[in-house]
Amino acid sequence: MPHRLEPYREGNSPIHSLDSRVRVVMVLVFILVCALVPVGAWAVYILLLALILSAELLTDLGIAYFIKRSLMVLPFVLAALPLVFSTPHGIQFNPAGLERFISIALKSWISVQAAILLAVTTPFDQLLLALRALHLPRLLVAVIGLMWRYLFVMVDEVTHMMLARAARSGSDNPARRTGGTVVWRARVTGGMAGGLLLRSLDHSDRVYHAMLSRGYDGEVRTLPQPSLTTANRWLLAGFILFAIFLVALSILFWG
């Protein structure tokens, strides 16, 4: 049973069995293409959507799973809504703005699906491996790795704290106004946050000791990575060429 926080879903689909470093780069390139394709290039959007839907189909997880999760970008779309009604001459319907608004919403929706695809098909340790392969600072990658590990511990702790608070947030008299003032509630929550931070400081001390006792000396050390197979290199090169071609084409016709 995976922890409820864990986005990774096991599988043996072609997407899952792709080298994670290749998958990470392909997703980043794909999102970059989405960003570079000009406003109103509908044909290209359709193509990109088809590509990402196809990849989703190949994961065996079901497209509905992706669509449901991808809708979380919707609220932010509000930020672009004013485009539809604003013109240099005041508030009125703006067809160019509408085109732009729909483009932004579509690009965003397609991009977030690519990000979901990455998260659900890449085990975290493979993701770290890919980040290292992309030459992120080793220390930062190590911090992110530790953070992920202790996120589960901390989230469980927060859940317990909130349960404990809820368990004591009752009232024996329904007629009485309950819950104290907003400021009081905020400060109680703040106290919980303070407690959490304090415990995490102690926790980090013990983790530090555990690391020291197994030889940690301040250097971040890892096993060398296996090099990319020739097939993967070709795949990556082909995908990047295709991306460049797509962007060039779309800028030529719609830019």
Binding site: P123, D125, G145, R149, Y150, R206, A210
Partner: peptide, 14 residues
């Protein structure tokens, strides 16, 4: 040295 809490001891992703 094996620490009391395995959550302190096990600090890696896998």
């Amino acid at each position: 040295l094996v620490f009391q809490s395995p959550d302190d001891q096990l600090f890696s992703p896998t």
